Simulated scan of single mutants.
Amino acid sequence: MNYLKYTQYVYLAFAVYFIYDGVIKINEGNDGATLSFIIAGMAVFMFFFRRKFARKFDDRNKKQ
């Protein structure tokens, strides 16, 4: 399960993309910028959640 250490960074990539998308939408005056920022916030939350889960998983494996 070594891939769990790296999949958490996908969420950061999504967050960066949706922040960029939200800024572009604000500058163009389009609707939906708030939705992009909400999705970016959720992606950042998921990054920290997955990182905590991966650490917990590694600690459990080390104890066994």
Rank of each mutant, 00 (worst) to 15 (best):
M1V: 15
Y3F: 08
Y3E: 15
Y3Q: 11
Y3N: 06
L4S: 09
L4K: 10
L4I: 04
L4C: 04
K5D: 05
K5W: 05
Y6I: 01
T7N: 02
T7S: 05
Q8K: 15
Y9K: 00
Y9F: 10
Y9I: 00
V10H: 06
V10T: 11
Y11A: 03
Y11I: 02
L12H: 04
A13W: 07
A13M: 06
A13P: 05
A13F: 03
F14W: 13
A15C: 08
A15E: 07
A15W: 04
A15Y: 00
V16W: 12
V16K: 06
Y17N: 13
Y17T: 10
F18R: 06
F18L: 05
F18W: 02
I19R: 01
Y20S: 12
Y20H: 14
D21Y: 11
D21I: 04
G22R: 06
G22T: 14
I24E: 15
K25H: 15
I26S: 07
N27G: 14
N27M: 14
G29S: 07
N30W: 09
D31Y: 13
D31K: 12
G32S: 09
T34F: 06
T34N: 11
L35V: 14
L35I: 12
S36H: 11
F37P: 03
F37D: 06
F37Y: 11
I38W: 05
I38Q: 14
I38V: 14
I39A: 12
I39T: 14
I39R: 13
I39H: 10
A40Y: 05
A40Q: 03
M42N: 07
M42H: 04
V44Q: 00
V44L: 12
V44S: 02
F45Y: 10
F45M: 04
M46Q: 01
F47C: 07
F47N: 05
F47E: 02
F48C: 01
F48N: 03
F48L: 05
F49I: 08
R50M: 09
R50N: 04
R51C: 01
R51P: 00
R51T: 03
R51A: 02
K52L: 07
K52T: 03
K52Q: 06
F53K: 04
F53S: 03
A54L: 02
K56C: 00
K56R: 02
K56M: 03
D58M: 14
D58Y: 09
D58C: 07
D59C: 08
D59F: 03
R60H: 09
R60A: 14
R60G: 05
N61E: 09
N61I: 05
K62L: 11
Q64E: 10
Q64W: 03
